[in-house]
Nucleic acid binder design. Structure first.
Lengths: 147, 147
DNA sequence: ACGTAAGCAGAAGTTAACGTAAACTAGATA
DNA sequence: TATCTAGTTTACGTTAACTTCTGCTTACGT
């Protein structure tokens, strides 16, 4: 997990200069944009995280798939498992249902919110420590420079 | 990784009522305080993350070990690997050295800082989404209540 | 002295999240 | 028509971070 991903935020604005339908992406387009392997993208599909159009031989990914991929990777960076991302997607998708279900989704959202707030606190504390250590380190370097 | 840990923030203030030396903890004390198994704590030791006193048969953990354990778990929650936590510990421990080394540590600290800032951004974006979905969900529930 | 609970080490098993290899295919190009 | 390229499936391999199991040792209460 020594990431540092997200290289080229590809400018495939429309992508209708090639054979792909408007607003859809090929597997390599996505893999290049997000710097992950095609295998990984197919793996996410197996897990139910992505649902590209499979009417033709080659998979065609919608904008929705692209957004999901972004969310998956964002979630991963902060320690979400794929299953947890899937859980969140299911909540978003489920849209409108019965009241009991709505309450269920609401409590799940709450659970995630609480966790995210905890994560935020954790990060802020760690950042504070790292920053103070950095400045301490800088002072030492400055002193060494007095030679 | 569906955590929600940190149950009892144990009040072992001194712990000299039992056989343990002042300011030291047993493996079960720590495992209960942080809700992890003793085996896991030994596992962290194998990885070089903890260094309890092993002069006697039973391990004795210092305050330093306890703090480290907290940091390991905090790191885990935000997606750090054990190796990365170890790397951070090594930086802290290394103390004062030669200028070239100091510069090296500084760059490592910088690397972690950048990553943490990215994580923070990720979390804030996710939090915003979750919150808006929550309020949307709430509105739907309110409407359903009109019966 | 004895039973038993707590601690120990070693090894094998488990889960998540992919990577790698082999063998196949559809569509474009020469 | 041949071949080349990007894409496909299937299956096994790998790494991290543990858990579970086995079999042993030490300390404690009676």
């Amino acid at each position: 997990m020594t990431d540092t991903r997200q290289k080229n935020v590809a400018t495939s604005h429309d992508g209708s200069s090639d054979g792909t339908a408007a607003g859809s992406y090929s597997i390599t387009q996505l893999s290049q944009e997000f710097d992950i392997s095609p295998r990984t993208i197919r793996f996410y599909e197996d897990k139910g995280l992505l649902n590209p159009d499979r009417s033709k031989y080659r998979r065609a990914y919608s904008k929705r798939d692209r957004v999901r991929l972004m969310l998956i990777l964002r979630g991963k960076r902060i320690g979400f498992t794929l299953d947890e991302s899937l859980e969140l997607f299911d909540i978003y998708d489920s849209g409108t249902g019965e009241e009991t279900q709505l309450r269920h989704w609401y409590s799940l959202l709450n659970k995630h919110e609480i966790r995210l707030e905890q994560n935020k606190k954790d990060i802020e504390e760690l950042l504070a420590e790292v920053k103070s250590t950095k400045s301490h380190c800088q002072q030492l370097i400055a002193k060494k420079a007095d030679d």
